[in-house]
Nucleic acid binder design. Structure first.
Length: 335
DNA sequence: CAGTCGTGGAC
DNA sequence: TGTCCAAGACT
């Protein structure tokens, strides 16, 4: 029921990831690459390991060092991030890479890391511990869940967050803080899962108050969420005879900010007017997509050519892979 | 502080 | 099909 028990479990059940140094290699003196660790932690924010793997591999191949990333074109980085979601992360990733490069490398303390763009309390603790072996307590969704169950905390999130943070800090060991941080999160991801936790094989089952009380699977409690509204709009795919597609770069802030996109109408609660048919627009179907806080239904229109575009620019080889998913869906419908 | 900000997989 | 949710940050 202590950190050593968990580290023993981690030594056996460690999961390989492209950015990780396995515990055996770390004990032999191998040091993590801070750039790889930072990149992985930003990508992993609210995102599954399965989704991150390919993107992490792609990014380190395109930009092997943080200096390479700092020198990249914004549009190339946004295109490479397309499909991973939460695009403010990509914008902050570039800002952070440029700051780190300007100051000659990553800072190696939690407090200094916290001052960088896109690095909040979780990521600062994760990079400090994993990349630099500093004692720091990570508090992510996994750790919140594990602590809530171990101590049978019934107060709902987010009210209980600071209590959970204190409990997590009390358990953090002086030795192997990086491995420990990854071990707690792995425990949450593989054993202490949100639904039907595998308490029977948990290295911390002895003394878990939530398991003993029979309420582990119900924790952590959470305040009810708001319902998602549905918004409606139109998306326009204009193609030239040579195959070029009219696209635009979205404004630098807000939803899908800075991303390459197809032109659309406003997205409203009530249906908006269809485009004038004399302009040659043809309806080819609809696309449904759900964002974090609303559903979206877009009517998809195509036209062979427009006399003169009023906005955007022509892209010769439109690639759905360079677009946020909602636009990739619409483009695939037209192709 | 509560709202904003994506996506795909699990159930 | 709908709901939940994943290694959160920013405003």
């Amino acid at each position: 029921m202590d950190a050593t028990t968990l580290l023993d479990w981690y030594d056996i059940h460690h999961r390989d990831m492209p950015w990780r140094v396995p515990p055996a290699a770390r004990k032999a003196g191998e040091v993590p690459n801070p750039y790889h660790v930072w990149l992985s932690e930003v990508m992993l924010q609210q995102t599954t390991v399965a989704a991150v793997r390919a993107y992490h591999t792609k990014f380190t191949a395109l930009w092997p060092t943080v200096e390479d990333l700092a020198a990249a074109d914004d549009a190339d980085v946004m295109a490479a991030w397309a499909g991973l979601g939460y695009y403010a992360r990509a914008r902050n990733l570039l800002k952070c890479a440029r700051e780190v490069t300007a100051r000659g490398g990553f800072p190696n303390t939690e407090a200094e890391l916290l001052t960088l763009p896109g690095i909040g309390p979780y990521t600062a603790a994760a990079v400090a511990s994993i990349a630099f072996d500093r004692k720091a307590t990570v508090l992510d969704g996994n750790v919140e869940r594990v602590m809530a169950r171990l101590h049978a905390i019934e107060e709902p999130l987010p009210d209980s967050k600071e209590t959970l943070r204190t409990l997590a800090a009390e358990r953090t060991p002086d030795a192997r803080p990086g491995d420990y941080a990854q071990a707690v999160m792995d425990l949450g991801a593989t054993i202490c899962t949100p639904k039907s936790p595998a308490c029977g094989i948990c290295p911390w089952m002895k003394g878990c108050a939530g398991r003993i009380a029979g309420i582990a699977a119900e924790l952590p409690r959470k305040r009810p969420k708001k319902a998602k509204p549905t918004r409606l709009g139109h998306v326009y795919i204009a193609r030239r005879p040579d195959g070029a597609t009219l696209m635009e770069t979205r404004p630098p802030k807000g939803l899908l900010g800075g991303m390459l996109a197809l032109p659309t109408s406003e997205w409203t609660d009530a249906p908006s007017p269809a485009p004038p048919l004399e302009a040659g627009w043809r309806e080819i179907g609809e696309v449904r997509h759900t964002f974090t806080h609303f559903h979206l239904i877009l009517t998809v229109w195509t036209a062979e050519t427009l006399a003169a575009e009023t906005r955007g620019h022509w892209v010769d080889q439109a690639d759905p892979g360079d677009l946020p998913t909602v636009f990739a869906k619409a483009l695939r419908l037209a192709l």
